[in-house]
Nucleic acid binder design. Structure first.
Length: 424
RNA sequence: GCGGCCAUAGCUCAACUGGUUAGAGCGCCGGACUGUGACUCCGGAGGUUACCGGUUCGAUCCCGGUUGGCCGCCCCA
């Protein structure tokens, strides 16, 4: 007996029964994003490690300790993508998209990888649905993309999701805030947690969203990013809030929202769902504006704004609603005797060619066991095919939910089924 | 990366705190009902008690390690 082999920790299989929910979310996303003019892209799951180091930032947790990095046989350092914005930007630059279109809108759906300790809503391979809008620096673009997320979440039927909003300023004003913050934090160095002491040297903004109560109090009493915004940033942020209000999208300004990636400028936002099913993984989606990242990657000077949502978490929330997804079986073809089995297979084949969702027990077996199987598949109707039906060319459609059998001609089953109300 | 809890049938859980052959419900398969499911009754299959080692006359139970899962910190999706 050989050793049983198991999947990689933190990476899950999705099987029928679960997959329908995922497909539903993905379909809704494709529909919704398409409606907003976003085109789907698919980039490789592996990229040059330098791409993430230069965009996401060397001092971030993602790059610093969560990346799956390895060397290929040519000695290149490659990484499994931990997020989707950088690969999209790379593709945008590589294909010189700016020379073709002033404004480009893309979305992607796919797996991301981060080496982390697992828990509810957090996996080493997880799935994101994300979108990026390149070429528009106007607040309207920020508002539109948040509108898209809001409409998508609402189409999914998810409620109690709060939009948190903040502005981190730009190259003109962030340095001043940064300096002031460091100065303030240094003065309180002894009072914050050990973690924050390290953070204030590497990435002081991160102190702002420390969950430690003491650190929170100190951060709250310190300099506020919003007070340091330069005039253009202030105007941009104000305009964005007016537009969101005009669109009827509720939001909360949270001046301590910073997010853990270095590439953001001005707008950052997070959609947070306070549902017990998510545990502490309450952020369902987040994003922001990154007007300088393209240049930093050696590309054109193009402003951009984007976001990503956690598909795993959306599915967790959807499951809580108890909804069922997946296509119902229209008809189960059962056979009354061995001699009719070939005819049953042929009938099922023909009806499938005609577009119906048909189930058939290829193993044959007793009629009773076939009926059980029919019940199990959730088929709306069952048709029993035997010698009598084959010679007369007529059969009955038995409604599995109960009710009288409906007589049909064997060569008109599809038409008959389509004429029946599809509601169960 | 740090701290805590856990691991028994496909699933959810028992097993009188070390003692015969590890049980139940659900699920699966079959029968009662040889052309009609879901309800009922009966039967069947399914376990190296996660893995490795230790203590003991004897370990699902106690100890150590490994792997995996869950929770908090951290961080995010």
């Amino acid at each position: 007996m050989s050793q049983k082999i198991s999947g990689v920790k933190g990476m899950n299989d999705l099987l029928p029964g679960d997959i329908e929910t995922w497909q539903h979310v993905e379909k809704l996303a494709r529909d919704m994003f398409g409606r907003f003019g976003y085109g789907e892209i698919r980039t490789p799951m592996v990229e040059d490690t330098a791409l993430f180091v230069r965009s996401v930032g060397e001092e971030t947790d993602i790059v610093g300790k969560e990346m799956y990095t390895f060397e290929d046989k040519g000695g290149r350092s490659l990484s499994l993508r931990p997020e989707g914005t950088a690969p999209s930007a790379r593709a945008y630059i590589e294909h010189s998209i700016l020379n073709q279109e002033p404004v480009t809108r893309w979305f992607y759906i796919g797996p991301m990888f981060r080496y982390e300790r697992m828990k509810t809503g957090r996996y080493r391979q997880f799935f994101q649905i994300g979108a990026e809008a390149y070429g528009a620096k106007e607040p309207a673009q920020d508002a539109e993309i948040m509108d898209m997320v809001a409409q998508f979440l609402s189409a999914l039927g998810l409620k109690d999701v709060t939009l948190n909003l903040n502005s981190l300023g730009d190259e003109a004003c962030r340095p001043a805030y940064h300096a002031k913050l460091v100065e303030y934090l240094q003065a309180h160095r002894a009072e914050v947690c050990a973690e924050c002491q390290a953070r204030m040297d590497r990435n002081p903004l991160r102190v702002l969203d420390c969950k430690n109560e003491k650190c929170q109090a100190i951060a709250a009493a310190g300099p506020n990013v919003l007070d340091f915004l330069c005039e253009p940033c202030r105007a941009h942020f104000g305009d964005l809030q007016r537009k969101l209000t005009a669109l009827g999208i509720p939001f909360v300004v949270n001046s301590r929202l910073v997010r853990g990636l270095d590439y953001y400028t001005r707008t950052v936002f997070e959609f947070v769902a306070a549902h017990p099913a998510l545990g502490t993984a309450s952020t369902v989606g987040g994003g922001g504006r990154y007007d300088t990242m393209m240049k930093g990657l050696g590309g054109p000077d193009v402003p951009a704004v984007g976001f990503a949502m956690g598909l795993d978490r959306l599915v967790l929330l959807l499951k809580e609603t108890g909804q069922a997804f997946g296509a119902p079986v229209d008809l189960f073809v059962a056979v009354a005797d061995e001699g009719s089995h070939d005819a049953g297979l042929a009938l099922a084949s023909r009806l499938r060619r005609e577009g119906l969702h048909v189930a058939f027990d290829t193993r044959g077996g007793s009629l009773k066991s076939q009926m059980k199987r029919a019940d199990k598949t959730g088929a709306r109707f069952t048709l029993v095919l035997g010698e009598a039906e084959r010679s007369s060319g007529k059969a009955n459609l038995k409604p599995m939910a109960g009710g009288d059998p409906i007589p049909v001609a064997l060569d008109a089953v599809a038409q008959a089924l389509r004429a029946l109300p599809s509601a169960s």
